[in-house]
Design a protein around this nucleic acid. Structure first.
Lengths: 197, 197
DNA sequence: GTCTATACCGTGATAGAC
DNA sequence: GTCTATCACGGTATAGAC
């Protein structure tokens, strides 16, 4: 029942274009004029599909947040030893970041100037807290080093993971590329960069 | 000879205010009206001190870049074993990030919409490349693990370091706080988060 | 579903008085 | 050095024809 051909815009297809431009120029640096040029339709035609610029932002960050929160409900994140759940969530976060790259990129860059942005920031904080609790449990189990503040370690770990959006660009033919990258990130984060082990 | 009291603005003191607002609202999300309110003077008075909004941005990112490139000229970054130079640069980058927090924050967020931004991004890439060469040398020495792509490891390492600007807020009384934080970052990055060593 | 035309407001920047 | 007044422009968004 899904229409294959696509010669006119829907909110979904328009979102794809908008998110790309938002990430190139920044949300505030993007005007409806920029969007209309990129989409190949007039400014006013955009308003036929969405209520305005902010709705596009809201849809985009919602999608990113759905992906991230979805991880926390997966079996790997709810069962087993805490350290294993931590590594699982880290690995899956990398994979979701890559799978939903433009949406998560936008999420990680919102500044809180509009209602939609502030809502997104709040939900993101929730996610961070959920992850921080996991790490805390792993420390209690004695599987993560206890000589550094765990809140700090969580932030640094996810600072490393989130930095992916600043430079990672998916390869056209790279299929299982995400899993490989996730492996490397987990290795570096938990085993360190030194070779003398 | 330095005038202690400050009841009128100079380009320097104005920059302090502007950079704070830029970081709160984003550069593109900040209008001259926002700046004038924050500075307590009228829009047109701002133009008496600086040529415009972009000059404020240029001054800010210049300051950040000076701080970062300065590190590469320090003895610790030019002498000794490569691995030691890598750890030194990492540690010092954290310290400079904290010492020049608002300026580096702005630098790390530019999108390339204006000339000043594109120039800043180019110089930043130069810095990253210089650091990547250091890490490469440390791998050649056998001191850094060779089972992961070194360009990738460099990006993740500095992704972790740079993420500081997203959440670190200096404590009013915290003096040697920066050095402590730098120690932790270096430990986590090079030794990893696991406790089983 | 897309267009042209337009309303209306905030933007960066300037002129000139004090 | 700061102000008020003003400019030209681009911003989001709407009206209404096709």
């Amino acid at each position: 029942m899904t229409t294959a051909k696509r010669d006119t815009y829907t909110p979904e297809t328009l979102l794809t274009v908008a998110v790309r431009v938002f990430n190139e120029r920044g949300y505030d640096g993007t005007s409806m004029e920029h969007l209309s040029k990129a989409a190949g339709i007039s400014k006013s035609s955009i308003y036929h599909h969405v209520a305005g610029k902010e709705e596009l932002l809201r849809r985009a960050v919602s999608r990113a947040l759905e992906g991230l929160f979805g991880i926390l409900d997966e079996p790997g994140a709810t069962r087993g030893r805490a350290i294993e759940r931590v590594e699982y969530v880290t690995r899956r976060t990398v994979e979701v970041l890559i799978a939903e790259l433009p949406y998560v990129t936008l999420l990680l860059r919102v500044r809180g100037n509009t209602k939609a942005e502030r809502w997104a920031m709040e939900r993101r904080r929730e996610f961070d807290q959920r992850v921080a609790e996991l790490l805390k449990a792993a420390v209690a189990d004695g599987d993560l080093r206890s000589d550094v503040d765990i809140r700090l370690a969580t932030r640094l770990l996810f600072g490393m993971v989130n930095s992916l959006v600043e430079w990672y660009r998916p390869q056209p033919g790279g299929d299982a590329e995400g899993e490989q990258l996730a492996d490397t990130v987990v290795q570096l984060a938990f085993e360190g960069m030194r070779s003398d082990r």
